[in-house]
């Protein structure tokens, strides 16, 4: 074993710089993915056949294709047809659309779990469909799916590690670089693992808290 505490200590500043990228990717992709997820979830239960079909196809595609393949395709495949995107942009797009696909399914399930009587009551008061969705159904549905959505964010945080293959200087990438330069495997990756763990712990706590708060009684 080649563990070297001093080397770990020395590489911490670099690792934290990588962690910053990992956190930024997670936050930005979560926000974009949530917007996609809400729109996608609404489309999945829409009365429009086109909206249902498109959202179903989207979810099917990005739940079925590995994120790594999506990233490689965007990064290496698109330039072949003349679209060249920076690695950070590719990372954000890949993570957002994949997260969005999973979030769509969670939001759809949330909407469908709300008793149909809620929609009927809202419509009976003269509310148009979209107003009833926004004021009555969605607030309840989103509250109910907060725990599974947070779980999905936790998965996303760890999935960001994959962007290291497309030259994004995230936590894993920095760890790999230190490993190469210092010819030491164990120390930098112990740091990488510890940082991932300390980033995910608050999310784990949040899930537990939300589950307790919004427990379906």
């Amino acid at each position: 074993m080649d563990f070297d505490a001093r080397l770990l200590w020395e590489s911490l500043p670099d690792l934290l710089r990588g962690a910053k990228v990992t956190v930024s990717l997670t936050i930005v992709s979560t926000l974009i993915g949530l917007v996609i997820g809400i729109i996608g979830g609404l489309c999945r239960v829409s009365r429009s056949r086109i909206a249902r079909g498109l959202s179903f196809g989207y979810v099917l595609l990005f739940r079925g294709v590995p994120l790594l393949v999506t990233l490689l395709f965007l990064y290496y495949g698109l330039p072949a047809v003349g679209i060249t995107l920076g690695s950070f942009a590719v990372a954000i797009i890949g993570l957002s659309i994949t997260f969005g696909a999973f979030a769509s399914e969670i939001v759809r399930a949330g909407i469908q779990s709300i008793n149909i009587g809620q929609m009927r009551a809202a419509r009976s008061l003269g509310m148009p469909y979209w107003m009833a969705m926004k004021e009555v159904v969605l607030p309840q549905a989103l509250r109910r799916v907060l725990p599974p959505l947070t779980n999905e964010v936790l998965t996303l945080l760890k999935q960001t590690a994959l962007v290291s293959v497309i030259a994004t200087a995230d936590l894993v990438r920095v760890g790999l670089e230190i490993m190469t330069w210092r010819a030491n495997t164990f120390s930098p990756f112990a740091g990488v693992a510890l940082i991932y763990l300390s980033l995910s712990l608050p999310l784990v706590g949040l899930v537990t808290f939300l589950e307790r708060k919004y427990r379906v009684t």
Binding site: N115, G117, Q118, R120, A121, A122, V136, Q140, R143
Partner: peptide
């Protein structure tokens, strides 16, 4: 309605 259908939130 029979089931009240109040908005619980």
């Amino acid at each position: 309605f029979q089931a009240y259908n109040l908005f619980p939130h």
